[in-house]
Every structure is written in structure tokens, then in C-alpha cells.
Design a protein around this nucleic acid. Structure first.
Lengths: 404, 404
DNA sequence: AACAATTAATTCGAGGCGCGAACATATTTA
DNA sequence: TAAATATGTTCGCGCCTCGAATTAATTGTT
């Protein structure tokens, strides 16, 4: 149960009940469509009359549309209701150090357009290029009602100022991306950390989305990010800094991390770590017997994955070590937060047949508690960052209304 | 923003708005009392007429009572409103391995009675003794309207079955304490883990309670427990197992923990750890030069605290080490969850002048993020477990209503 | 002492909303 | 063709908040 926030509450008006119930109905249609008014009545527990009125209102506001007439063994046939998917067009932007993706999605999270471009060197150029592309896309899809823009970032967004802070991998300096992009496009902009976006993606579009209320996403790339859904909502912490479990110290005397400390989790379990493990194994080989003079170089994690796939034992060993440490960190998350599901996102998910069992083993060995967390690799939801960003904007209409 | 849980939602009725607004008003009075109807109007933003009607209703339901007439420079004088503290009597029971506390509190969290007894050896005896004592207390305070019983436990409570599980320090076997106690007393019973209870206590009665929405309590005794308030509500995780950060591995090769693993955080930072550090230092002395033949024995953490207070260097060193490891774990919590406040509860809080600075140092050294978490010792709220248990029951009436 | 100004609190009609019964519509079965 | 059954709509009732008007109580001014 939530405590009422007396510094930021909202009283109920005469329209509050309608707001609550129409959101519930909208969600029921989203989940179970197609659905008749009678179905909605049964699933919601509202009166037939109430359902009728709310449905009429939602249709007039273009949230729902009537579809085909269904079958019935006896009696009048039901008129099916559907989400009007074009009611809200959402732009999703996924900024990563090298590449930036832009997508246009509808209410169902389906992409109407998707494209990539090199990430501009400065935020000014970014705003210019992206806003031009968005103007063009709007012209190409004039039938949509545009809701807003969601941006996934490889860093943290300060909650109060909505400015980008702490994004070491991106060269941009602290800046007000939100206001600039809003001014350039005329659409409302929401910023969100990439790990949080992935968590939202799994939470709204994942296969377990229907039952799970506590879910954690671990994004593994050059670093490690954690996005947490607890009690059915995103955990952002003070000023949006929550989720930096990647910088929890695993070993004080470990290698130095980009954050300035030593032996952070991401130093041991990120893609970069696997590459390091591989090259270390290689060089130790050179120092000893050169039993494999033709051993190929692995400059990227992609290489390591491929080599492991091809049966290279050193690459497999590097993956093993990475998986081992991944398991340690995940064990920490399970002990402390006991989520229903932990989803691993990133290139490593492609080798989950090898990595997954090791992670599970390490976790099993360390879990004394009765927690029954499922660990799985992403892949069910393609483009998790973009999808999550869509979900972020989606929440405005499908999320629980803010009452009290 | 929360996602609506379609497996467990609540539609709005015509009374929903009243429910929301009267809870808001109840909370406003709780925080700012005494308060006039006009004050409530200004603070809530509701219409004067609405405030008047809701006030009348809350008075007729005995939640509020009218008090003195206030002063005003001009115009009619306001009639002050107060919480009717006796509207709800709540029994708080704090079970610990050795001692069990029973308290009777009113709506304000003030104790009308408080007593202790040795913890019974079995749950059957516990139910018998406690329910008899509660019957007697009810007779002694016949003016109260009794709301329920809250029980703080040194273990985890399974969310779905509401049974006590995973309480290694308590000798009782897995059992249905809730139902037994409800049958014996006729009052509704809520069970909660002790760390969670402390978190609730700080959240509802602590000095920062008015502004903070993300708060973590670390309870330090024989083990370490963590209670988390995130997004203004308790995080219990799947089936109530969240918060076992005490069993996160700090050092794989460390001493064995009661949970079966090695080198858990609580092996390094609990009271028991400090006692171990002290006795290790002592024995190493014996092996070397016996420079302090009269060095006293320290069998309990209490001893270590006293010795450190008296200037014993070995005891101070033991506390230092404990503080150091406490800092490591707290740094993990800050990196991952970025709460506004972390409160340390337990005997160690009494030595916070020595322990606090060390903890802060370790955290500062490790925090690369911009999180601005305050770390403090408890002490502001006496009897945190009992108070938290009161808060747990309090939430039924003062918490946000469950809408959608 | 009388009256205006000011603030507190109540009253009352209007409009939004959900409830539930009655009614209209549509289809199958006897 | 009539009864049975299911979907969907209409309408009056009661609950709720809003906002204007009204009553109540107090101070300052003339």
C-alpha cells in the first residue's frame, strides 16, 4: 500500500471515477481484444449500462473502434471492439554511442517506420537531424495522431531537471535535450535511461507482462545497467540515479573501472570483460607454449561470440567467466529484490544456451532464500529500447491514473 | 507511473471520489493538526463546501473531533480539527529470539501500554500467552476501538499464504501464525518482517517522513536485514522475500554464514562479526606478546560497545572493521537503489559518532554516481519495530486507496 | 453604538458518474 | 410463430464535487 504524498497529491473530482474506469476498460481491450461490451462488463465487473456509456465515449474519442460482429450460440451477436491503433503515434529514439535509431510506432507497439543513423557528434546536431526526420515522417503518415517522443539514453536523466547527466559513453555534455527537442518538434518529449526503457519494454510487451509485477532487466554491453520494475512501477530513486548496480564493487583489488573505482561488477561481466578475458588467455598462451599460433584476434565482443560459436576453447572460456560473474551479480539482485523475473538484454543473450546454464548454476548455489526468480534472456521483444520508450509514452494513457 | 494490474484491479464506484478525498483530508490533519476547515480547503484545493461535508462525515465516523477555536486577525474564528487518536487502537507485537514486546498504540503512534516477556518456546504457547494479554489490555482500555494486531518477525512472511517462513533465528517451525492469532483474539492480524517494519516506522514517523519517498532501513543485529520503501511503498518482492541483501556475497572465500554460503555481507558487518573481530584480535595477542593480560572477554556485542566506549583499542578496532563493511554494503544499496535516506537501526546506532564517519567515508569513496543519499542512525524513532508495525495497520486507513 | 469589511462555515442547485431495472434488439430453438 | 437467450440502450436514483449564495462570527471605522 502506498502512502499518500502530501507534497504532491491529486484530489478526486467528479470525473475521477470515469477516468479510472475508462483506463481499466482500455487496458482490458488492449489485453484481450477483440472484446464485446458484454465481455467488458463481465471482465470489469461494471454494470452493462456503465460499460455502454464509457464505450461510447471512448469510441467518440477514437480510442476504440467497432469491428466485426462475433458469433454466439444463442441470442444477439456481440459487436467486437478494438483498440484504434492509430489513435496515438509515438516516436521512439534510441541513442547509443555509435548509432541512433528512430522509429514510429502505433498504440500496439508496432513499428510503422524504423531507421538508423550515425549518432551525431553533438547534441545540437542531434536535435537538428532528428527533428527534421520526424517532420518528414509525420508527413509520410498523416493519418496518425501524434502523442510524443520518447528517447532512450545511455546514461541517467535527472528526475527534477530532466537533463541528461552521467552519460560517460556519450560524448555530449550535460544538457537540456528535452526542452530543445520539444521546441524543435512541437511534441512532448520523455527521456529515459536505456536499462529502464528495456524494463518497461519487458513489462508492457514481454510474454510474462500479464502476470509479473516485479521484474528486473540487466542490460549487458560495454557496461552493465539495471532497470527495475517493483510493485508494478519503474524504480528511479532519488533524482533518477537508481539502477547503477553495475558499479557495485565485486573485488576491491580488481581492475579499474571507468567510474574511477576498482572491481565493479561491470568490469567482470560486461562485453568488454569477455574481450579482456579472451585477450588475456591469448597472451598467456604466447608466453607459454604457442600451441595455437593461428589463434585469431578478438577486438570486439562480437568476435568472441563468433569464435565461441565456432568452437574456439579460449573464447568459450572467456564467455564462461563472463557468465560466472553475471551470475554473481544476478544472485545479488535476487537476494535483495526477489523479482519474479530477471531478463538479460544484450548481445550475450544470443549465446544464452551456453551462458544461461552457468548463470543459473551460480545463482542456485548462492540463493539460500526461497525466492523463485526466473532468469531468462531477452529476444522475445525485438528492439527492447525502442519498444520500452514506446511503453513510456503509452503509460500516459494506459497507466493507472494518479489519484491521491 | 503504475501499470494497472488486470489480474487484481478495482473499478471506481460513485463513492470512490469520497474515499480518495477523505483519505487526503485525514492525512492533512495528521500532518498539520490542528487545522480548520478553511485551512483544509486551502491545503487540499477542494471546495469549501466539499471540505465541510467530508469533515462532517469524518466527525460522525469519529475519525476527527472538533477542538478549540483559533485566533484570527479579522473575521470569524476557525474551529480547529484534530485526529481522534482513540479511534483506532492497534496492538503491536515484536517477536525476537529472546524477548517479545507487546504494545498498545493509538492512531498517533503513541503507546498506551508496553511490556515485554520472554519469547515462548513454541508458537502454540506464544498464541496462548499473547492472546490472553491482549484480552486483558482490552479490558484495561475499554474506550478504544480496536483495529487489529501487527506482528514484527525475525524472518520472512510468505506473501500469498501469510505464513512465517525462513526464520532461522527463531526456533519455530513454519506455521500459520496469522490465522491462529486471529482466531484466538478475534482481531485481524498483519505479519511483517522486522526490517520492513522498521522501514515503515521511519517512513511514517521519522523526521524525514514528510518529504522522502525512497527510504531504506538496514537493521543490524545478529544478522543484517534490509527494508525498502521505493516510490512511496514497501517493496516485498515475489512472495515477500525481498530485502535479503544481508546474504549477498562480499567475499567468496570468507567465513561460513548461517545461510550455508560463504562471506555474506552479514558475516562481515553484523554484531556477531564485531564480536568475532574482537576475539580474533584478543587471541592473536595471546599468541604474540601478552601485552594486556587483563584484557576482558567480550561475549556480546554489548560488551564490545562498552569496551570501545571505555577506550579499549581492540574493541574500537573491531567496531572500525564492522563499520568498514557496513559501508561497503550501504554503498551497494546507494549505487543500486539511490534512496533519499538510509537509516541504520540496531545497537550499533548508539556508537554512530564512531561508526558513522567510517561508513560515510567508505560510501563516498565508492560512489561515482550523483546520488545524494543521506546516511543516518536511527534513534529518532524509539522502538522502531513496534512503531513500524503500528504504521502497517495505520496504512489501512491512511494509505492511498487502491484504485484501478 | 452602528456599520462596513473580512474570514469561517453551511446550504443548495447543477452537472458528472455508476447502479440497477426496464426496455429494445437480434438470434436460436422448440 | 412463440419462447428463450444474449447483447446493447435508456432512464431514474443516489452519491459526489463544484460554485454561488447565504449565514455566522469577529474586527476596525465612523
Amino acid at each position: 500500500m502506498r502512502k499518500i504524498d502530501l507534497n504532491n497529491f491529486q484530489v478526486a473530482t467528479s470525473e475521477t471515477a470515469r477516468d479510472i474506469n475508462s483506463r481499466i476498460m482500455l487496458n482490458l481491450v488492449r489485453k484481450h481484444q477483440p472484446l464485446s461490451r458484454a465481455d467488458l462488463m463481465r471482465r470489469s465487473g461494471l454494470q452493462r449500462s456503465t460499460v455502454s456509456v464509457i464505450t461510447e465515449q471512448l469510441i467518440s474519442e477514437h480510442w476504440l473502434r467497432e469491428g466485426a460482429v462475433g458469433q454466439a450460440l444463442r441470442g444477439r451477436r456481440p459487436t467486437f471492439l478494438h483498440l484504434n491503433e492509430n489513435r496515438a503515434g509515438i516516436f521512439g529514439i534510441n541513442i547509443q554511442p555509435v548509432t541512433t535509431d528512430i522509429a514510429l510506432a502505433n498504440l500496439s507497439g508496432h513499428f510503422l517506420a524504423q531507421e538508423s543513423m550515425p549518432t551525431p557528434a553533438s547534441s545540437d546536431k542531434f536535435v537538428k537531424q532528428v527533428s527534421r526526420r520526424i517532420r518528414e515522417l509525420r508527413k509520410e503518415h498523416p493519418q496518425m495522431a501524434y502523442e510524443g517522443i520518447g528517447v532512450s539514453l545511455p546514461g541517467r536523466v535527472d528526475l527534477s531537471s530532466q537533463k541528461l547527466v552521467f552519460a560517460p559513453n556519450l560524448g555530449w555534455r550535460e544538457m537540456d535535450l528535452k526542452v530543445q527537442l520539444e521546441n524543435a518538434t512541437g511534441l512532448p518529449v520523455d527521456l529515459e535511461n536505456a536499462a529502464n526503457a528495456c524494463a518497461l519494454s519487458e513489462f508492457w510487451f514481454g510474454k510474462h507482462a500479464e502476470v509479473v509485477r516485479n521484474l528486473i532487466v540487466v542490460t549487458v554491453s560495454e557496461g552493465i545497467g539495471v532497470g527495475m520494475i517493483l510493485n508494478g512501477q519503474l524504480v528511479r530513486g532519488t533524482s533518477g540515479m537508481a539502477g547503477e548496480f553495475g558499479h557495485v564493487t565485486i573485488n576491491e583489488n580488481g581492475p579499474k573501472c571507468g567510474c574511477g573505482n576498482h572491481g565493479c561488477w561491470e568490469v567482470y561481466a560486461s562485453n568488454s570483460a569477455a574481450v579482456r578475458y579472451y585477450s588475456e588467455a591469448k597472451s598467456s598462451d604466447r608466453n607459454g607454449k604457442t600451441n595455437s599460433p593461428k589463434q585469431p584476434a578478438a577486438k570486439t565482443f562480437e568476435n568472441v561470440l563468433q569464435l565461441a560459436e565456432q568452437g574456439d576453447p579460449k573464447a568459450a572460456e572467456a564467455l564462461n567467466r563472463m557468465a560466472h560473474y553475471l551470475g554473481k551479480g544476478i544472485a545479488m539482485l535476487i537476494a535483495g529484490l526477489a523479482p519474479d523475473v530477471i531478463v538479460v538484454v544484450g548481445d550475450v543473450a544470443r549465446a544464452w544456451d551456453k551462458v544461461g546454464p552457468i548463470v543459473t548454476d551460480v545463482v542456485k548455489q548462492r540463493s539460500s532464500t526461497h525466492a523463485t526468480t526466473k532468469i531468462m534472456a531477452s529476444g522475445l521483444v525485438p528492439q527492447p529500447r525502442l519498444r520500452g520508450i514506446i511503453a513510456l509514452v503509452l503509460q500516459r494513457h494506459f497507466g493507472a491514473p494518479t489519484t491521491a
